[in-house]
Design a protein around this nucleic acid. Structure first.
Lengths: 148, 148
DNA sequence: CACAACTAAATTGCGTACAATTTACTTTGA
DNA sequence: TCAAAGTAAATTGTACGCAATTTAGTTGTG
């Protein structure tokens, strides 16, 4: 009898024995958790990430921004255009090297900072993890990021 | 002096003090890590997830599939149509309730199972985490999934 | 039976992600 | 010096992910 039934699915191919699916799904879940908080300020999660980088860095090339966020120009270029159209960022041409775009926040983008300060904490609470667990989760995700 | 400079960015608004960004980025990274392995079999990561569910369940309504994967019909309907077009799944109408679609694998979808058995392990190795760390990461992501 | 309330899936529209290519500019080396 | 190689960003095309709506079928209540 060589029938294949679900009992014969190798352990490692079961959805609930893999790390990757919960990681993927938890990330979706967290972005969902941010959504209502951010859409109150007309921001997507990615737009919020870009603003966070710009609040720390003032001015940045698209490539450097991509290095920080682990994203390429195919994702960032159209995003930054939309953000420019909303008045959230500036996209200045580099004066020395005219290929580069120098991205920076506007007054409006800067102004959002105070309004969103408490969102991370509120979302973190919703996650239902202890501080200790959050910090372990963060460390493990960062380890994944450095290795792959 | 009420100028706002980067020194005054509250701790919780810094990219590297939040869990959410590494989680989001690690999930992207893991999907990227799967991509070359799966595209060798002409599968996307989500198609692979769907197949894993179907290998365990034989036949499933779209809603039940969505509950397993934490996704809605807006994502699944077009995905399942593409998978049907590729010959990976069947989309049978329910005979009792004609609203539902009963999703199941085809022979072809079944056949892929053996071919992808070793992918999770290979990707897990690439992540550079110990078994212990993988299991902690998995547990914490699952805790996030139950809570939010 | 009638018909409103409900439900499953599909559709629409928008914003990511990313591979692959293109465009525009810069650097290099014979 | 000037074409070839290199590089930054943008574009193209495809596939998610999801809110909001629509379509089609079912159920509950009088």
């Amino acid at each position: 009898m060589a029938t294949i039934d679900s009992k014969q699915i190798p352990e490692q191919l079961r959805l609930d024995s893999q790390v990757c699916f919960p990681l993927y799904s938890a990330a979706n879940e967290v972005v969902r958790a941010y959504r209502p908080h951010l859409s109150a300020h007309d921001l997507s999660y990615l737009q919020y990430l870009v603003l966070m980088v710009l609040w720390e860095e003032k001015e940045l090339e698209v490539k450097a921004l991509g290095a920080k966020l682990n994203l390429d120009s195919g994702t960032l270029s159209p995003l930054l255009k939309r953000m420019e159209a909303k008045g959230l960022v500036l996209r200045k041409r580099g004066s020395i090297d005219e290929r580069v775009r120098l991205i920076s926040t506007t007054k409006k983008g800067e102004g959002i900072r105070l309004a969103v300060t408490d969102i991370p904490q509120r979302v973190a609470c919703q996650l239902g993890l202890e501080m200790e667990e959050l910090s372990v989760l963060k460390r493990l995700c960062e380890k994944v990021l450095t290795k792959v």
